[in-house]
Design a protein around this nucleic acid. Structure first.
Length: 401
DNA sequence: AAGCCGGACAACCGCCTCGTG
DNA sequence: GCACGAGGCGGTTGTCCGGCT
C-alpha cells in the first residue's frame, strides 16, 4: 500500500542539505516563487524531490522563521495549547508565528515533554500522574459528571481552537504581513505583569465553582445572573450543551475533523443558539454562558457583547452579527494573551491564590524566564494553567457568596 | 585520544485531506 | 461520485555534536 517515497527515484539525493543546494533553492524561490513543488527541483537544478524541497523551505530557509531558543512565554504557550490541542503541531504553530510546526514538535519532544514528566505531570493528559480526583473511590456522581462534561467541553474547545487556527492560517495566507503575533506584541506582556489564562477549561472550571451574582458586571440589577449551581449546563442532559454540540449543522463533532463554518458569525450563533434562532428559550443557560465569558474578560469586548446582547429584549441577533466580525479573533486573543489577571477569576477581589503563588500580584503569565527566576516564580505555576483537574484548581475558586 | 552516550534538530516516511478533472 | 495528484501533517529516524569515561 502507498506509493514509494519520492526520493526513491533514481538519482535523487537524500540526507542533509548542502549550502549550495540551499542557495539554489533560495535563489529559485526568490525569483520565481515555489509554484509546483514537484516541478521545482528540475527547474532549480536540484537533485531532490519536490517534497524534500518544500520541507527544506518551510522548515529552514523561509525568511520569516525565527530560530534559536524558545522564550519562556513561547514554552508556556506551547504547553497550554498542547493541553488543549494535543499533538496538533500545525495548529499550535499558528499561535507561534515564526516558529514551524516541526520546530515546536521537536522542542516538545526533546524539552517540554521531559520537563513535564520530571514534574510528575503526564505530558499527554497534562494532569498529575497520580490524580487523586480521578482515582478517588470517594468521588461523587456529580464529580464524575463534571469530569465527563469537562472532557466533553474540552473536546469542543479543542475543535474550536483548531478551527480558529485554520482561520488564522487563512488570514496569514491572505495577508501574511498583516498578522502579528498578539502574544509577542502584547504590550501588557512586555510589562511582565499580567497572568495569562489560556485554558478555557480552567476558566470554565473556575466559573463552575462560583455561585451567585457577579458584582463585576454591569446591568445585573436588571438581569441578575442565574446562580451557576442552578444552571444545568454541566449536566449531561443539558439541552444547551447538546444543542451546542449537535444542533449546528456545521459542527458535526467535537472530535471529528472540524468542518464548522469558518465564519465568526456562525461561531457566535453556535455559541448562542438562542440568538441564532431569535428566541430566548435557553435564556438562563445563556446567562450562565455569559457569566463564564465575562469572567474571562469577554465583557471587555464592548457593549454590543456584554451589555446589549444579554440585556434582554433587544435585537440580539443583529448585535451578535455585528460583534461577530472579530469575535473569534478577540476570543482567541483573550485565551492566549488575555490581559486580565486572576482577579477576574476570583471575583475582582484583588488577588487570588495564584497571585500569592506567583510572587505577588504580578502573577506569572507573560513573564520571561529571567524575571521568573529572579522573582522565584515556580514553573509549576505555569503548569497550573494547563491543569484542568477540577479538584485542584483552587486557584480559580471564587468567593463564596 | 578514542569510544560511548545522549541531546538536539534536520530530514524522511507514510498517511490524510483537499482540489480538480 | 470517483480517481488522481499536490500539498500538509504528525510520527519516526538519521545525523551531528558535545560531554563524559
Amino acid at each position: 500500500m502507498g506509493r514509494s517515497p519520492c526520493s526513491d527515484k533514481v538519482g535523487l539525493k537524500k540526507g542533509p542539505w548542502t549550502s549550495e543546494e540551499d542557495h539554489k533553492l533560495l535563489a529559485y524561490i526568490e525569483e520565481h516563487g515555489h509554484g509546483s513543488w514537484r516541478s521545482l527541483p528540475i527547474k532549480a537544478g536540484l537533485q531532490r524531490c519536490g517534497k524534500s524541497c518544500r520541507l527544506r523551505w518551510t522548515n529552514y530557509l523561509r525568511p520569516d522563521i525565527k530560530r534559536g531558543k524558545f522564550s519562556f512565554q513561547e514554552e508556556q504557550t506551547i504547553i497550554q495549547l498542547h493541553a488543549l490541542l494535543g499533538n496538533r503541531w500545525s495548529a499550535i504553530a499558528t499561535h507561534l508565528p515564526k516558529r514551524t510546526d516541526n520546530e515546536i514538535k521537536n522542542y516538545w519532544n526533546t524539552h517540554l515533554k521531559k520537563r513535564l514528566t520530571k514534574l510528575g505531570i503526564d505530558p499527554v493528559t497534562h494532569k498529575p500522574k497520580s490524580n487523586a480526583f480521578l482515582s478517588s473511590s470517594t468521588s461523587t456522581n456529580s464529580q464524575s459528571k463534571n469530569a465527563a462534561n469537562l472532557s466533553h467541553m474540552a473536546q469542543w474547545e479543542s475543535a474550536r481552537l483548531e478551527a480558529e487556527a485554520r482561520l488564522a492560517k487563512q488570514s496569514k495566507l491572505g495577508s501574511i504581513n498583516q498578522i502579528q503575533n498578539p502574544i509577542l506584541e502584547c504590550p501588557i506582556s512586555s510589562q511582565k505583569s499580567p497572568v495569562v489564562c489560556l485554558d478555557i477549561m480552567t476558566a470554565l472550571n473556575g466559573s463552575l465553582m462560583k455561585t451567585g451574582l457577579d458584582k463585576t458586571k454591569p446591568n445585573q440589577s436588571k438581569q441578575p445572573l442565574i446562580p451557576l449551581s442552578e444552571v444545568s449546563y454541566m449536566n449531561t442532559t443539558s439541552p444547551f450543551l447538546d444543542q451546542l454540540m449537535v444542533n449546528n449543522g456545521d459542527l458535526e463533532s467535537p472530535t471529528s475533523t472540524v468542518s464548522y463554518s469558518e465564519n465568526s458569525s456562525t461561531l457566535v450563533s453556535t455559541l448562542l443558539p438562542e440568538c441564532r434562532d431569535g428566541g430566548i428559550d435557553n435564556y438562563n443557560e445563556t446567562i450562565a454562558l455569559k457569566s463564564i465569558f465575562s469572567d474571562m474578560g469577554v465583557h471587555q469586548f464592548g457593549s454590543s457583547w456584554s451589555q446589549d446582547v444579554f440585556r434582554g429584549n433587544i435585537d440580539q441577533h443583529q448585535h451578535v452579527q455585528e460583534s461577530g466580525d472579530n469575535f473569534v479573533e478577540k476570543f482567541t486573543d483573550l485565551l492566549l494573551n488575555a490581559s486580565n489577571d486572576l482577579h477576574t477569576f476570583s471575583g475582582g477581589s484583588g488577588g487570588g491564590e495564584m497571585a500569592d503563588k506567583g510572587g505577588g500580584s504580578s502573577g506569572n503569565g507573560g513573564l520571561d524566564r529571567e524575571y521568573c527566576e529572579d522573582n522565584h516564580i515556580d514553573w509549576n505555576n505555569v503548569l497550573d494553567l494547563s491543569n484542568v483537574s477540577p479538584s485542584d484548581s483552587s486557584v480559580f475558586l471564587g468567593p463564596e457568596l
